[in-house]
Design a protein around this nucleic acid. Sequence first.
DNA 1: ACCTGAACACCGTTCAAGT
DNA 2: ACCTGAACACCGTTCAAGT
Lengths: 197, 197
Amino acid sequence: MARTKESYHHGDLANALLGAAGSLLAEGGARPLTLRAVARRAGVSAMAPYRHFADREALLAAVAADGFARLAAALETGAEGATPGERLFNAGLAYIRFALTNPALYRLMFGPDLPDKGRHPVLVDNGAAALAACRRLVGACADGETPPEAIERRTAAKWAQVHGIAGLMLDGLLDDLPDDVEGRVAVAGGILAADGA
Amino acid sequence: MARTKESYHHGDLANALLGAAGSLLAEGGARPLTLRAVARRAGVSAMAPYRHFADREALLAAVAADGFARLAAALETGAEGATPGERLFNAGLAYIRFALTNPALYRLMFGPDLPDKGRHPVLVDNGAAALAACRRLVGACADGETPPEAIERRTAAKWAQVHGIAGLMLDGLLDDLPDDVEGRVAVAGGILAADGA
DNA sequence: ACCTGAACACCGTTCAAGT
DNA sequence: ACCTGAACACCGTTCAAGT
């Protein structure tokens, strides 16, 4: 555990690479997030990352997996309120706030830069954890008679609802949006309420 | 008009390039959709596309704009039913069917390969046309007393709902999905209905 | 075990040139 | 007006080599 080797140049290159990748992503999106640029920023040779990640996609998957973990956490802490319905609603706003605050990360998590996500187990696991958080919030709104399939469908519907709003907002496809994140979250709340949130 | 020049090699290189780009996109997504590959497939030198498109992003935008036009058309023809509510519901299924049938195109239209879509006027126009179709379907469900802002919010909610379902399905993030498109569309219908479609 | 350097087959894009 | 060819600065990835 206390193996801070500092051997060649780094003691913990894998994490340094992840950090560099995160900054590059936040700065300019996935395109400039290049294996060579990450290596450069970590102060290491262009080929060093290959000791820690199989290829570029594996590095992207690791960044995205961390994003799913952070999203799940944001859902948990955002789910405040007196009733289950309120908690679900506020978790939805937290979801959208996460997307608007971390646009490039959110697009990496869901966009086409990570095709066949099934091939990255850590991605599947963390994504499932986020989905489970959502399912729990939806389930708390149902009574004991509600069959599991109905819960599952409602969970998918809720997730899709906030996911869709976040995506359209990130794409600039909704008219007359405020410039600041909280203003947009408020608009999102209105859209959610319009459909019987 | 009848200027089929056939001058150098092509009479209509711009359209030939668009066609080649469409095939490449359908075959392997946006990444192999490279300016040089498009030129190759059109049988023209690597630099020829620059006479017709400012850069790679402009070509992608043209492909995506055509996708928005086709999506709007799919919404129109899909909007069948005895009541406005039924027509809206079926248009939603048509939306999701379009996404599942043209996954790479759909991701190009909405994904991060086309950042700041505002800079491609043809994209904005065709996107607005698709949104208008959606708004019309939603508006037909409202009575005369409904204020325009409510229509706008409901339109955004409906669009986000189907957009979110399509996105999650394309990402393989929904469990236990059938393999065929129509089976998935049926599941989508169940999810839509679960939320009070 | 971890990192480097040279090399290969690609890209997007610019510029000068051809017809 | 439209197309080509050479060139530049990048990529991802492989392989042999260093410590």
